[in-house]
């Protein structure tokens, strides 16, 4: 009965979505604004990566909201796991072997460097703050899996996260004062396209997002690992 009902629900959803999907052309322009971004995105924002110019240039306010959603989810996770977590029931974990331990310690700075490269070059190459932050968090995940017993300090992770958010909002607010522009306007010199120091505030904001996302996801991993031990 349960399966029958769920199949009926699925059929309704499938018909509803399917009728809409048949109207959407595949492989053609579906939005008018996409063509505008491609044509003038490079001149408007100075970023060679058009996806970055949309994320941190045209739709930066939207990105601020999404970063806030991420922050709220991370805080909620911490709150859910912190309530009623009995201290002192942590069991002793078996230490990792020397090869695993040394390998993880060797790889950790390299992964951090790779993540930093990804978010520093977000306006030039594929990548950006979100992807680089995820790579940075994966380095911490490696340490948690390989060198068990090692922990990040919560103070540092919270401080990094807060600093990243503050830089994002602060740079955006400066845009209000600089030359009478709007929130998150690109007021720094754009420079030459395809150079590292170009695109105004976009690389700075992406680096801030990278630190923030990396610290948040590392905190999420820390909370989950702490709970499961």
């Amino acid at each position: 009965m349960r399966i029958f009902l769920s199949l009926v629900v699925l059929a309704v959803i499938a018909v509803g979505i399917g009728k809409t999907l048949m109207e959407i052309p595949f492989g053609e322009d579906t939005t008018n604004v996409g063509g505008y971004y491609i044509q003038s995105g490079r001149d408007d924002t100075g970023a060679a990566n058009i996806v970055t110019s949309v994320v941190v240039g045209y739709r930066a306010f939207d990105t601020l909201g999404e970063v806030t959603v991420l922050f709220v989810a991370a805080v909620g996770l911490g709150a859910v796991l912190a309530v009623g977590s009995a201290s002192g029931r942590r069991r002793d974990v078996e230490p990792a072997s020397l090869v695993l331990y040394t390998g993880c310690r060797f790889l950790f700075p390299l992964i951090l460097l790779f993540g930093a490269y990804i978010f520093i070059h977000g306006h030039l190459t594929p990548g950006g703050g979100f992807q680089g932050g995820a790579i940075v968090a994966s380095a911490f995940l490696l340490v948690y899996l390989g060198c068990r017993g090692r922990r990040i300090r919560h103070g540092w992770s919270k401080a990094t996260e807060s600093l990243g958010g503050l830089v994002f909002v602060g740079l955006g607010l400066l845009g209000l004062t600089a030359a009478g522009h709007f929130f998150l306007s690109n007021y720094l010199p754009k420079g030459t396209v395809n150079h590292l120091f170009s695109a105004g505030i976009i690389p700075i904001i992406y680096v801030a997002i990278g630190f923030k996302v990396g610290a948040e996801l590392a905190g999420v991993i820390d909370d989950l690992v702490e709970e499961s031990e």
């Binding site: 604004v33 996806v51 110019s53 994320v55 999404e66 959603v69 992807q131 999420v220």
Partner: peptide, 16 residues
């Protein structure tokens, strides 16, 4: 580029 930009953040938020 617009759907790419939307999905980019949606993936990270989905993880959280």
């Amino acid at each position: 580029p617009l759907p790419h930009a939307l999905v980019l953040t949606a993936i990270v938020i989905g993880l959280a």
